[in-house]
Each structure stands twice: as structure tokens, then as C-alpha cells.
């Protein structure tokens, strides 16, 4: 391990520990958070990562299935709303610190030493944002068309058919419980595996391809963070005065959120603090901006 990699590991240790905690909190056979909630409400189902689906409540809302939010899947909906609302105040910290799907692909990207020149990265943050919200709009259109039965023969929901949570849960179940959990694959899960881990994880710089381009919860959390940042809640800011222009921040940011002028694109930023730990020009601030101070 290079000296710089070691330094990154040490400086960001709390986030990497949080990755592990996120795995134990949400992924079966542990799923400690979900298990605790199920225990409190007397639900005897065995919780899995699906019990806190990051997509279905969003699909229900845009598909007009509000009743599902208040049905037996209320915990899913409560979880998703909590993630989005908390992003206003603290940034998309669930994405950056706890989400096991993003953590696994990012960890894989960091662990496998592929030369940088073979890794894909879009340097133009506006293009990344355009693509990210293009996906969200497509997701909403499908939820609407399927939910209101306007084109339910032509479109199927992409929630379950392309589910990275399902693929991750199957791997975890195979590892800790029953190897046959990874026995069955359908075309959607194969496509998901390819894009989430192989392309989005290994080939995309930072390993967050899935988070950037295929996660509606991440996209909505990014919007919430943008609003929160404007209102003065926690956000990462760049201090031009002490920037040396080395561009290390850009290459370190797993979410490609550092613009070419080194300011932060908040719809992408997950407050992971990698840039803060790498460079003094970045600070997590609340209230007045660095320039105002």
C-alpha cells in the first residue's frame, strides 16, 4: 500500500468504519437497525436489505400508490423520507457514510489497483448532474406510467428488476448463510451486477457509478442537500485563497463533485469529507460561507 493510500485510510477511518457499520445495520443476516424496529413493532419477518428498499417508496409516490406508504411497508417509507429530509440539514450523509450498496462498490474500487488511465471519470460536473437527473426523470416517468396504468404493458418498474440491494443481499446471504442464495440470476440482476460492481464500481473512478447515475434516493438526497446548503446548513465549501490548484481533490472525490474551479457541486456531494482530509482549502461549514467570514 502506498504512503498516500495509507494516509487516506487513516484520515478517513471513521467513514470506513461507518461503511462497516452500515453493512451490519441494514444487510441480513445482521440488519441490526431493521431487526430492532421489527422487534419493537412485533413484526416476525426476517429483515433483509430489502426491508429498507431505497427505491420503492419513491416509486409509490410518483405512481400514486400512497396507500403503500402507510401499509405494512411503512418502515421503508419512513426510512426513505428520513434520509431525504436529513440531507437538507446534514447533506447526503447516508449515501456517503452508511449506504452499503455505495460502500461496497467504493470499497471494491479502492481495493482493486486499476491504473487511473483505465478508469472512467467525467470531469464536467454539470454533465454528471445532467445525466444523474436524466435518470431520475426517467425513473419518475416510468413510475407514473406504470403506477397510473397508462403504459403498464409497455413498461415495467425498474425498482425490482434492476436491484443492486438485491444483488448485494444475495451475496451477503451466500457468504454468511446459504451459498445457494447466489444460485439464481435473471437478466436484470446480471445487468445490475455488471453496472453496479464491474462498470460503476471497478471501472468508474471512485467506484460510485451506481450512486451517481442509477440511484433515485441519492439524486433526491442531492437535491435536498443543495437546498439545505443554500439555507446555510452543513455543507463542504472551498476556500479559493489557500487553493494551490493541485487537483488532488478532484481525483479523490468519489462522487465527482469537485468542479474545475474546485468549488463543490452540492447535488453530487455526499459530505464524505475526503476532500477536507486531503486539503486545507475545504471545510465543512454551517451558517455563513467561508467567503463571508
Amino acid at each position: 500500500m502506498s504512503l498516500r493510500a495509507k494516509e487516506t485510510l487513516v484520515k478517513n477511518r471513521w467513514r470506513y468504519i461507518a461503511f462497516v457499520a452500515g453493512f451490519f445495520l441494514f444487510v441480513a443476516p445482521f440488519a441490526l437497525l431493521t431487526r430492532a424496529v421489527y422487534f419493537l413493532v412485533g413484526n416476525t419477518a426476517e429483515p433483509t436489505l430489502h426491508s429498507v428498499c431505497f427505491r420503492m417508496p419513491i416509486d409509490w409516490i410518483f405512481g400514486g400508490r400512497f396507500y403503500s406508504i402507510f401499509g405494512s411497508s411503512w418502515f421503508m417509507a419512513a426510512f426513505v423520507f428520513t434520509v431525504i429530509i436529513s440531507s437538507i440539514f446534514f447533506g447526503a450523509v447516508f449515501c456517503g457514510w452508511l449506504c452499503p450498496v455505495g460502500a461496497v462498490s467504493e470499497a471494491l474500487s479502492r481495493a482493486v489497483p486499476i491504473p487511473k488511465r483505465f478508469r472512467i471519470r467525467i470531469r464536467d460536473t454539470t454533465l454528471t448532474v445532467s445525466m444523474r437527473y436524466g435518470f431520475l426523470v426517467g425513473f419518475i416517468i416510468i413510475a407514473f406510467l406504470v403506477g397510473y396504468k397508462l403504459a403498464s404493458d409497455q413498461f415495467g418498474s425498474i425498482c425490482c428488476r434492476y436491484c443492486s440491494s438485491s444483488v448485494l443481499q444475495n451475496f451477503a446471504s451466500a457468504l454468511f448463510e446459504d451459498p445457494s442464495a447466489v444460485g439464481y440470476w435473471h437478466s436484470g440482476s446480471i445487468i445490475t451486477l455488471l453496472f453496479w460492481l464491474l462498470i460503476g464500481g471497478l471501472m468508474f473512478s471512485g467506484g460510485r457509478g451506481w450512486c451517481l447515475f442509477f440511484c433515485p434516493l441519492g439524486a433526491l438526497s442531492g437535491l435536498a442537500h443543495k437546498i439545505g446548503g443554500r439555507l446555510g446548513f452543513y455543507r463542504v465549501e472551498h476556500n479559493k485563497g489557500i487553493c494551490t490548484g493541485c487537483n488532488r481533490c478532484q481525483s479523490l472525490c468519489p462522487m465527482w463533485a469537485i468542479k474545475n474551479d474546485h468549488t463543490v457541486e452540492r447535488t453530487l456531494c455526499v459530505n464524505c469529507k475526503e476532500c477536507i482530509h486531503a486539503c486545507d482549502a475545504y471545510k465543512l461549514v454551517r451558517g455563513k460561507s467561508i467567503e463571508d467570514n
Binding site: D124, S130, G134, F155, G156, S157
Partner: peptide
């Protein structure tokens, strides 16, 4: 390029939805 990126992703997502219906 921003408009193109946006439109391409909308189209890609709709295509995935269509493929999902087929599967």
C-alpha cells in the same frame, strides 16, 4: 452536451423500463 446527456439518460432509463416489461 448537457441536454444530450440528460436526454440520453432519460432514454436509457425508459429503455430499461421497457426491457423490464419484456422480461
Amino acid at each position: 452536451s448537457y441536454i444530450l446527456g440528460f436526454v440520453l439518460m432519460v432514454a436509457a432509463t425508459l429503455s430499461l423500463g421497457s426491457y423490464s416489461a419484456a422480461l
